[in-house]
Computed example of a mutant assay.
Amino acid sequence: MDLGDLQIFQAVVEAGSVTRAAEHLHRVQSNVTTRIRQLEQKLGVALFIREGKRLHLSPAGWQLLPYAQQLLALAAQAREAVCDDRPRGPLVLGAMESTAAVRLPGPLSEFVKRYPEVKLTLKTGNPQQLAAAVLAGRMDTAFVTGPIAEGPLERVPVFSEELVIVAQAGHAPIGKAHQPLPPVIVAFEPGCPHRARLEAWYARRDGMPLQTIEITSYHAMLGCVVVGMGISLLPRGVLATFPDRDRLSLHPLPRGENRASTDLIWRSGALSPKITALLQLLKPARALRAETLAG
């Protein structure tokens, strides 16, 4: 059954005759008659009892009618949802852990208040994982930092992060000339842009860490740094969420190496009202980022 057949069937039921249904549908009478007969042939039952020019529903027709009404109503709702420019329905959002912990609580809280018809899901991962999920359709949009896998993606800068090296409190200055580089770093798994940035920092100074301790959360990472297990590189904003901040020492990176842009990405051609609404809400953060870069 197609929706056109059901629409004609419902029109005939409501009009009580093929003639009036054809007028309502702006079709010729023979076309309506043919479509009804074709529908009856497909179902293998008579849907109407014919008495001259009048039609009455048969028992099978009465059984079909509520299903036809439900299907046509669902189709109308689907058309409305697709054409509606209101943010509504599921939104699967991806982010790096630092972005989710520091940057998103405020904006997402406001987003949920403004758009209660959106069912928001937040998932974390590294930029490569997030980009792959967006390309595969498992996520609608994601916040990423640094280069990502090539693909049909669009991206808009939304945050600018200051990156700092953190070490145990009282640690000697890091990166100064003629000083040995710390042998151990604490970082996320390969694919993390901050880990890649720290490894590149070592490489520019003709060194590489002798050991990398892989951790799955920032607070666990900072806990390792506090007890002197190694150094790490992360956005300065993450430190605001760490209760033992005074047990760390901060070591700034040189200008030009100390900032990272976080972008919102989505698949090309898939900019939905939900993503547009999120971008609109992030405008103040984008304006702040522009001021920071200009300053």
Rank of each mutant, 00 (worst) to 15 (best):
residue 2 D to L: 03
residue 2 D to T: 08
residue 3 L to P: 01
residue 5 D to P: 00
residue 6 L to I: 13
residue 10 Q to S: 09
residue 13 V to C: 11
residue 14 E to Q: 15
residue 15 A to C: 08
residue 17 S to A: 15
residue 18 V to G: 02
residue 22 A to H: 05
residue 26 H to W: 09
residue 26 H to R: 15
residue 29 Q to L: 00
residue 30 S to C: 01
residue 33 T to E: 05
residue 36 I to Q: 01
residue 41 Q to N: 15
residue 43 L to F: 10
residue 46 A to H: 08
residue 47 L to D: 03
residue 47 L to E: 08
residue 47 L to I: 12
residue 48 F to Y: 12
residue 49 I to S: 12
residue 52 G to K: 11
residue 53 K to F: 12
residue 54 R to F: 15
residue 57 L to S: 03
residue 58 S to Q: 09
residue 59 P to C: 10
residue 60 A to V: 02
residue 60 A to T: 01
residue 64 L to F: 05
residue 68 A to D: 05
residue 72 L to N: 07
residue 73 A to M: 08
residue 73 A to L: 15
residue 76 A to V: 01
residue 77 Q to R: 13
residue 85 D to E: 14
residue 85 D to C: 08
residue 85 D to P: 00
residue 87 P to Y: 01
residue 90 P to K: 06
residue 90 P to A: 10
residue 93 L to W: 06
residue 97 E to G: 04
residue 97 E to H: 05
residue 101 A to W: 07
residue 102 V to M: 03
residue 106 G to F: 03
residue 107 P to T: 02
residue 109 S to N: 07
residue 109 S to P: 00
residue 109 S to R: 15
residue 109 S to Y: 10
residue 109 S to E: 13
residue 110 E to T: 14
residue 114 R to W: 15
residue 115 Y to K: 13
residue 116 P to T: 06
residue 116 P to Y: 01
residue 118 V to N: 06
residue 119 K to A: 10
residue 120 L to N: 04
residue 121 T to I: 08
residue 129 Q to I: 03
residue 130 L to Q: 03
residue 130 L to P: 00
residue 132 A to E: 10
residue 136 A to L: 10
residue 142 A to L: 01
residue 143 F to E: 03
residue 144 V to D: 02
residue 146 G to P: 00
residue 149 A to R: 12
residue 153 L to T: 02
residue 154 E to C: 13
residue 157 P to I: 04
residue 160 S to D: 06
residue 160 S to W: 07
residue 160 S to N: 09
residue 162 E to H: 13
residue 163 L to E: 12
residue 165 I to L: 11
residue 165 I to E: 04
residue 166 V to R: 00
residue 167 A to V: 04
residue 169 A to Q: 10
residue 172 A to F: 06
residue 172 A to L: 12
residue 173 P to C: 04
residue 173 P to E: 09
residue 174 I to E: 04
residue 177 A to I: 08
residue 178 H to A: 15
residue 179 Q to H: 13
residue 182 P to A: 09
residue 183 P to H: 13
residue 185 I to D: 02
residue 185 I to E: 00
residue 189 E to K: 14
residue 189 E to F: 05
residue 192 C to R: 00
residue 193 P to H: 12
residue 196 A to G: 10
residue 196 A to I: 09
residue 197 R to E: 15
residue 199 E to L: 14
residue 199 E to T: 14
residue 203 A to H: 11
residue 205 R to Q: 10
residue 205 R to I: 15
residue 207 G to V: 02
residue 213 I to H: 05
residue 214 E to F: 06
residue 215 I to K: 01
residue 217 S to D: 14
residue 217 S to H: 04
residue 218 Y to W: 11
residue 223 G to D: 12
residue 223 G to I: 02
residue 225 V to M: 11
residue 225 V to F: 00
residue 227 V to K: 08
residue 227 V to E: 15
residue 228 G to D: 02
residue 228 G to R: 05
residue 230 G to Q: 10
residue 234 L to K: 07
residue 244 D to M: 07
residue 252 P to V: 11
residue 255 R to L: 14
residue 258 N to Y: 11
residue 259 R to M: 12
residue 260 A to N: 15
residue 262 T to F: 01
residue 262 T to V: 13
residue 262 T to S: 15
residue 263 D to V: 00
residue 270 A to F: 10
residue 271 L to S: 04
residue 272 S to A: 12
residue 275 I to K: 03
residue 276 T to I: 07
residue 279 L to A: 03
residue 279 L to K: 07
residue 280 Q to Y: 01
residue 281 L to M: 09
residue 284 P to R: 04
residue 287 A to V: 09
residue 291 E to L: 10
residue 292 T to D: 14
residue 293 L to C: 05
residue 294 A to R: 14
residue 295 G to P: 03
